[in-house]
Design a protein around this nucleic acid. Structure first.
Ligand code: FES
Ligand code: FES
Lengths: 158, 158
DNA sequence: CCAATGCGGATATAAAATATCCGAGTTCAA
DNA sequence: TTGAACTCGGATATTTTATATCCGCATTGG
């Protein structure tokens, strides 16, 4: 079980967009991160559909964040890219075999699925506690306050 | 991102094995749960390699739990089937592009990976709190204390 | 010895992730 | 107003992974 690579790209792009004064095209974000343009565009479209970013068409178009960095969470981004399907999916095998339970009595989710969902909920809660602003602060601290400033400068010199 | 189906099978098998007095062959577990025998065998082998269950070869052979049900956690089973690779994998794209960071300065894990690892840790901690005994108790309660008894009886009548 | 079982690898199929392309629509400049 | 250049968007290939299956070998117990 592995999270799609698009999640990492999306996180990096959202961090970058916090330092942009104008819309940033997908090609420019791809150049900045050294990833294939066409595939990154797909992830950005997913973010756009989820309402995390807003797309502006036309010659001076590109992508812009729809909310302040402190209001965007890692959970939103993960859900946007991966979908909100549960990590553990109960396939109701309790209804199979010689001891199969009557399907009519399976309106309630089974005990195993409930337990796994509880653990998954803990993960989602933790993801919801991570904001883009937190990531920006962390990256800035790691680089002795040079990375974010350099990023803003690079984005400005179109 | 979706957890492999083998995890559900493994959980159900461990629950079933708690009610067995003798080793249970893979074919019998497959029949009980109505799943393909050959593929289930693969999952059981993974559990065996991880030390969750013990395999006994020979004519009266089969699988047995290595620990009491209260000592086996859902985390052990998930790791056994899926491997202990992290859900979020940092591919170090911060080293790419025109603003790429010097690889020599990347000995420390990046801020994004750290944040995602924290969330993942919360999930693992929650999984470690789930024991097979808990699942048995939950299933028993859901069935008005009939399912586990029926299971033990079915396993005894080889 | 013979039958039954777990183990491991090799193989075929199905699904998903990855990577790419071209068209519809918009904006800006001439 | 006209047009050209640029943007996003969805539909399309390619590669990788997960799923499912099979067969031969070693081991155990009758
Ligand atoms: S029946 Fe298998 S987890 Fe619900
Ligand atoms: S460089 Fe992308 S998450 Fe670490």
């Amino acid at each position: 079980m592995r999270l799609s690579q698009g999640v990492e790209w999306a996180l990096h792009c959202c961090v970058s967009l916090t330092q942009a004064a104008e819309p940033v095209p997908a090609a420019r974000l791809a150049e900045l991160h050294g990833v294939p343009t066409a595939y990154l565009a797909k992830q950005l479209q997913a973010l756009s559909r989820a309402g995390v970013i807003h797309s502006i068409p036309g010659q001076m178009g590109g992508y812009v964040l729809t909310q302040p960095p402190s209001a965007i969470t890692a959970l939103q981004i993960v859900v946007a890219i991966e979908g909100d399907v549960p990590v553990f999916q109960c396939t109701e095998i309790r209804q199979n075999g010689p001891l199969g339970v009557d399907p009519a009595k399976c309106s309630k989710r089974c005990a195993i699925a409930r337990a796994m969902a509880t653990a998954e909920h803990a993960w989602r809660e933790a993801l919801a506690e991570i904001s883009i602003a937190d990531l920006v602060a962390g990256i800035d601290a790691d680089s002795s306050n040079t990375a974010i400033d350099g990023l803003r400068r690079w984005l400005a010199t179109g």
